[in-house]
Design a protein around this nucleic acid. Structure first.
Length: 883
DNA sequence: AGGGTGACTTGGACTCAGTATT
DNA sequence: AATACTGAGTCCAAGTCACCCT
């Protein structure tokens, strides 16, 4: 353990030249990939080995074909598939409609939980809630309490972002276990530099030289790593253990609102240890104590308890943030771990309208064929996908045909898919789409209102007295399964879900939602307050799995859970030094399992890899850390590893990274004697790995590292790079930080179809402007000499301007050019990077809110309406909050 | 211990409406 | 007015992980 006190100087100099290693590297086009995959071009190119190596590697090591093919991403142009069959205009007698009418009758009288006019925006909601005054305070307190604890943290290296950790120190220098990871990782020389990115090139990633000394293995399990830095001043209680609490089952399910959310409960703990400077409260408690005690203690405390310290004094800047906080609502009910709510009311789910046949005949061997509505419905599902990549795939076609053929019957005229011509249906569909597009604004508006009217009652639930938005209250319409990548079930018919498939979960004393389809009834009604779902049905594609209906992200329940997630990640900060020291020591353990756990943990920590659960044969062949195959990692002397595999959603992960020598050697050992398709970590699976992690920190699992590294990277970059300047400069810093995180997490997106066109258009414009500047300069010269300006392109005489006016014009045009060039660089830079995912799932919103408060950046510049609603719990954070 | 299940989070593509540009 | 572009919102697939059961 060692948790080292961090003395180390932080090296995050901008000038540091070392390239960051961990970035996703891009490889140029790979021959094997499907075009879809090729669409994604990793933004960061590593200099150096790139593409060819990869391809070579692949061929040489025999990646299996599925891997080689890469992910198959649905074509961007695919037309909407889902609704053709149930077009809005379809029958008026749709389920929805009937439901509505029914509902009206039934719900209105019984005080349905649904508000007449639900707050449409956060603000509205907020104001509404304001009226409920008292409650608000509670939550506020809760929130305060939560925030506080954290504040003050340390800066030891351990807490630094991965990026920061990679650094200058060479591996060789630190062979010792006791050194902090960061110090141990050496930067790879060429790899990783992303010269192409303007920002990077100048800024460099945070490289930290962590020189810290951490070491020691003090074992302390009990102790928390030291880490603290003097920087974070505040000490507040550290709310950490929430998660553990959650799991506890408390017998008293009845607890109501009073119990605090776990997170909140934290008492000012006894935290830890090592850090001498850090206020106790901030530190996390030692592991040992944590784990055990946590269970017991948690239950009781309330959130409110902490709150005390801070009064709600928010700074003025802060004040604007309050409007987004839902402080007025009551805190979620108990958190005894098991109980998620005390009272729950909602109106169930809404079903898609029944299929309305169009009667368009498709052709078989050139002749029109008559289909029953059922057959036609499925044919239409396929027809409308005509120009997507899906129908190009053998698996998709095969699965579709199997299911459709069943529906047609053995003796149907149609005997093979290849002789089918769905064009008439496709054309009809395009036509319908066009018609819809041509509708007048009023018609569209009317339709929208009609739909809203039908759905309104399903949009809201009442949970413990609070009005909450429901997330996905619409039952999924039938369609063809669009699995990602090489999914074996892609193309299968996803049948229509009926009320008799749906199980409803609702409060015991709440009215049971009326079944929207007359004559049918719910499969089951439960009253389970240990779960948060409102309804579920079995996934038709995978009957052993479920599709759930949950509350929206803006709900208290989700917010609490979100906050707990970040609190857990923050807790990791206090253990990370010890964890790194421990796995470093185990790189050379005699025990293979231990060694594998160590190396896997290292990869998860350093590269933000996902855990990697085992997958069945009927799923796409993707991997995560524990399921890496030998062929997914190539050792490149002297100590680099080249990763190439399909991860979640069949998104390719490609990265070459320099690792510590013991890791490099261990990987080679794990690979020796195995075939390419064998598991790299044969002694490991996620449950074993997580069991190990749990021993180190209560509640720790592999995914916490992702959250931790993402959030701490944001916090770190924002704090180091933000300079005084205008708003747009600050926003650029934020975007840059966001981008770094997205790269670490490998959040990619498909390059827009129009990207290159957009770029050339911009280039053209810039050229034009440059031409104008040139002319202006000539005119300026002439003006200075008292000559009139030259004629313009059309031969017309230009206005006679003074030299000053011309100079102003030149300056303006140059500024315009500069701005366009910046836009262009940004666009190019982000063309394959998805920023949203990390913002939504990995970045502690309190970091952003606090930064906005400190730098007077309007929070709306960073969070859109839904994020503001989702993160309302984070709004009251103090400006000095640090992750 | 290990497999299976259930619940919940994470994630990229799509759709659509509003805005900017031509 | 037509078209292009953007971003928010939606959709639903695909992960993670805890817990139960054998």
């Amino acid at each position: 353990m060692a948790v080292q006190t961090s003395t180390k100087p932080n090296v995050y100099e901008d000038e540091d030249d070392e390239p960051l290693v961990f970035k996703r590297c891009s490889t140029k086009s790979k021959p094997n990939q499907l075009n879809a995959e090729a669409k994604k071009i990793p933004a960061q190119r590593q200099v150096g080995q790139p593409g060819k190596q990869v391809s070579e590697h692949r061929s040489s090591n025999g990646l299996n074909s599925s891997v080689q093919k890469g992910k198959m991403v649905p074509s961007t142009k695919s037309p909407p598939v889902k609704s053709p069959l149930a077009s809005p205009k379809a029958s008026t007698s749709s389920a929805g409609a009937s439901a509505v009418s029914n509902s009206k009758a039934s719900t209105s009288s019984r005080a349905s939980p649904v508000p007449k006019s639900p707050p449409s925006t956060t603000l509205d909601g907020h104001s509404k809630r304001l009226s409920e005054q008292n409650k608000s305070t509670t939550i506020k307190k809760e929130i305060n309490s939560i925030e506080h604890p954290a504040q003050g943290n340390s800066d030891s290296e351990d807490e630094k972002p991965i990026g920061a950790r990679l650094g200058k120190v060479k591996p060789s220098e630190d062979s010792d276990d006791d050194k902090p990871l960061s110090s141990r990782i050496a930067p790879k020389s060429k790899v990783g530099t992303s010269g192409s990115h303007p920002y990077d090139s100048k800024e460099r990633k945070p490289v930290v030289s962590k020189v810290q000394k951490n070491g020691s293995s003090t074992t302390d399990k009990g102790k928390a790593p030291s880490v603290v830095s003097s920087k974070r001043p505040l000490d507040k209680a550290n709310p950490s253990e929430n998660s553990s609490a959650k799991r506890l089952k408390v017998s008293d399910s009845s607890t109501s609102v009073k119990n605090k959310p776990v997170a909140a409960k934290q008492e000012p703990k006894e935290e830890d240890d090592d850090d001498d400077f850090i206020p106790i409260s901030q530190r996390s408690k030692k592991v040992a104590s944590d784990s055990k005690s946590s269970l017991t203690k948690q239950t009781v405390t309330k959130v409110g308890s902490f709150s005390i310290k801070k009064t709600i004094k928010k700074s003025q800047k802060a004040s604007k943030f309050t409007k987004y906080s839902k402080s007025t609502t009551k805190p979620p009910s108990s958190n005894d771990g098991q109980t998620k709510w005390t009272t729950l009311e909602h109106n169930g789910v809404i079903f898609p309208p029944p299929y309305k046949p169009h009667g368009i005949k498709m052709l078989y061997n050139g002749k029109p064929v008559t289909l029953t509505p059922e057959q036609e419905e499925v044919a239409t599902m396929y027809a409308v996908m005509k120009d997507t990549d899906y129908v190009q795939k053998e698996t998709f076609r095969k699965n579709f045909w199997a299911d459709w053929h069943k529906l047609l019957g053995k003796n149907h005229v149609i005997q093979k898919l290849d002789a089918c011509d769905f064009t008439p249906i496709y054309d009809w569909y395009q036509n319908e789409k066009e018609k819809k597009k041509q509708m007048s604004t009023e018609e569209k508006k009317a339709l929208k209102e009609e739909k809203l009217k039908q759905e309104e009652k399903y949009m809201w639930a009442r949970v413990d007295g609070n009005q909450e938005k429901v997330g996905n209250f619409r039952v999924e319409p039938p369609g063809l399964f669009r699995g990602r990548g090489e999914h074996p079930k892609s193309g299968k018919l996803k049948r229509r879900i009926c009320p008799s498939d749906v199980t409803i979960n609702i409060g015991k004393n709440a009215p049971i939602p009326e079944c929207p389809i007359p004559g049918e009834s719910w499969k089951e009604v439960r009253h389970d307050n240990t779960v948060t779902w409102l309804a579920f049905w079995n996934d038709p594609i995978n009957p052993r799995e479920f599709k759930y209906v949950f509350l929206a992200p803006s709900s208290n329940l989700k917010g609490l859970s979100d906050m707990q997630k970040y609190e857990k990640a923050r807790r990791l900060k206090d253990h990370i030094g010890k964890i790194r020291a421990s796995y470093t020591k185990d790189f050379t353990s005699k025990d293979v399992t231990k060694r594998q756990i160590a190396v896997a943990t290292y990869l998860i920590d350093k590269l933000a890899l996902r855990a990697g659960n085992e997958k069945d044969d009927d799923e796409a062949d993707t991997v995560g850390c524990c399921t890496l195959k030998v062929e997914n990692v190539k050792a490149i002397p002297p100590n680099s590893l080249e990763f190439n595999f399909l991860g979640k959603d069949s998104i390719r992960y490609e990265n070459t990274v320099e690792v510590e020598t013991p890791v490099y050697k261990a990987i080679i050992q794990f690979q020796s004697g195995k075939r390419g398709s064998d598991d790299l970590f044969d002694m490991l699976d996620t449950s074993r790995l997580n069991a190990h992690l749990k021993n180190v920190m209560d509640g720790l699992t592999a995914k916490v590292f992702r959250t931790y590294n993402a959030s701490i990277t944001l916090d770190d970059i924002l704090n180091k790079k933000t300079k005084d300047g205008d708003l747009s400069e600050k926003l650029v810093v934020y975007q840059h930080a966001n981008k770094e995180v997205a790269i670490i997490c490998n959040h990619q997106r498909t390059v827009s179809k129009t990207h290159s066109a957009q770029m050339s258009k911009l280039t053209e414009k810039i050229d034009d402007l440059q031409g104008i500047v040139k002319d202006l300069k000539i005119d300026l010269d002439r003006a200075k000499k008292g000559k009139p300006p030259l004629k313009d392109a059309d031969g017309k005489q230009k206005k006679n301007l003074t030299p000053e006016a011309l100079e102003r014009k030149i300056a303006q045009t140059n500024a315009k050019i500069e701005k366009m060039e910046l836009d262009m660089r940004t666009k190019e830079d982000l063309k394959t990077v998805a920023l949203g995912t990390s913002k939504i799932n990995y970045l502690d919103p309190r970091i952003t809110v606090a930064w906005c408060k400190r730098h007077e950046v309007p929070i709306e510049k960073i969070f859109n309406k839904s994020l503001l609603a989702k993160f309302s719990w984070a709004m009251p954070v103090e400006p000095d909050f640090r992750f």
